[in-house]
Design a binder for these strands. Sequence first.
RNA 1: GCCCCGGUAGCUCAGCUGGACAGAGCAACGGAUUCCUAAUCCGUAGGUCGGAGGUUCAAGUCCUCUCCGGGGCACCA
Length: 577
Amino acid sequence: MKKETQLIEQQLSAWCAETFATCFPDADLSDINLRVNASRNEQFGDYQCDAAMKLAKALKSNPRAIGQQFVDTAVLPAIVEKIEIAGPGFVNITLKNDGLASQLTNMIADDKLGLPNIGKNQTVIIDYSSPNVAKPMHIGHIRSTVIGNSIDRLYRALGYNVIADNHLGDWGTQFGLIILGYREFADHDALKRAPVEELERIYVESYNRSKDDATWRDRAKAELVKLQSGDAENRKLWESFIALTLGEFDKIYKRLDVTFDLYRGESFYNDDLAGVIERLEEEKLSEESDGALICNLENDGLNVAIVRKSDGGFNYTTTDIATVASRTAEFQPSEIIYVTDDRQQLHFKQFFHICKKLGIETKLTHIYFGLMRLPEATFSTREGNVIRLDALLDEAEARALEVVKTSSPDMDEAQQREVARAVGIGAIKYTDLSQNPTSLVTFTWKKALAMDGNSAPYLQYAYARIASVRDKYAAKFPDISPDEFPIVLTEEQERRLALKLTRFPAAVESAARLHRPSVMADYLYDLSQAYSSFYQNVPFLKADQGPRESRIRLCALTASVLKNGLALLGIETPERI
RNA sequence: GCCCCGGUAGCUCAGCUGGACAGAGCAACGGAUUCCUAAUCCGUAGGUCGGAGGUUCAAGUCCUCUCCGGGGCACCA
């Protein structure tokens, strides 16, 4: 039986709370945060507790004295070397070297590297990517796809049962225009060559005609009505548009290593929409206004949401409510997570609110991110200022290939291409994942394709160096098995690396909890820096037996953490680079 | 008009539930390669955290006001 892993931070926090309770048995400490946190600055120990300052007021005492009392009464846990009081009343905690070493040994023995199984028996649905049919994906789509996919991976790693659902925009008024346009001026050769581009051209042209041609508008509407009422021919056309588009999308998803468990577009919920309206009316949550049916949420500061248009059609609020109802009934998720850009915030607040009023208790979370902007000067001449996603990926791979060719000229070309693919795609993903999603993002090729510094290639490079060390060790000492030697931390860089390694589970946990892959990226970069410094300054293949094996084990564990950690960002780790 | 998100070093960005002197990368400058992949490492320089008040023992982080940029506010999703 696998013992439940507990994060060091939690362990120390619990200990800290207990100790304070023993120190001050009469005080009510329930409102005060007694947590222990990783020290930001290593001169203040490995972990620190700032509770003494927080308690000062409640206990009517000064923080130094409280800290001192804590230090005097505390019974140190086995893993702790010493505690000290410092500054205004911080308790700084330093871990034992052999305590760290045994943590590492446990991680090595655990194929999950110490990750807690906090998602056991919980289902989470993640709704991300969700592009529209008949429109090519451009750089605006990469954030939802890559961020959503990373959240997906983080949750899975923590034991959640994740359902990744691609909620395609496959239904709506645009299909009337597309069907009509298709009938009138489709270029069938172009449709074979580049189906989505041609579909988009058809849509745009048809849309433009509808703007000042009432007849065209009416004809498009007639096509839409036919489609919606199940006309066999239009239905078939519509299905073919979806198939063509998905065929193109799948190429991109494959390149990005993104897979979905479900592809349920808006059309999937079409039959449920009337029922949603009925429920809203029954619950008296809706009212007529200017011929439309609305939910008035002004009292909640959320304006007004239209649930049925004056022409009788439904819109996305209705669809989204139907989707939640369907998902909760079918999967009983503990949480549904949506990943979209921040323009949709109001919409999500509105329909989350309506769902709650309808008695749906499921936790609904909207992860939003800032739209990608272009620095005007660079791209103003580009047509429509749009960079297609596949073009971006091509460029990334090409750029990476140049670097690979100059850095690894001896590698055969097929392998160079393979490395360039992993590195190029990794660079693109990392750029998106390493920033806080809510930040505004300015797209620059330089940043997106960065190959050094805080970038995926830096992390991949660190990994490849370890792989190389491992192979050289195996060749040089074929008869020695490093795992028979204990991990001993003597050098400064060694200890720093060890400490970082033990924080992997905490990093994964908080990245998932905060829905922020950037936390993971930050951690991995930090770890790689610690490793690179170790690598550069501490010899291992040339060290004596004992330290050598200990260091090899550290290398191996670093490799595992990097590989698994980067996998949580959807980034590959080639063995050679 | 109301609401949301940004404004941190020349540039691009971190900074978790307020915690000890604000951190990276790029660019600049100076070092390191008989040695485990230099896509690396070590170092120097660079910031009144948009501005003004306030709360607090402690504010980049919370509150109020304000300036700048982006976005959203009824039949597109």
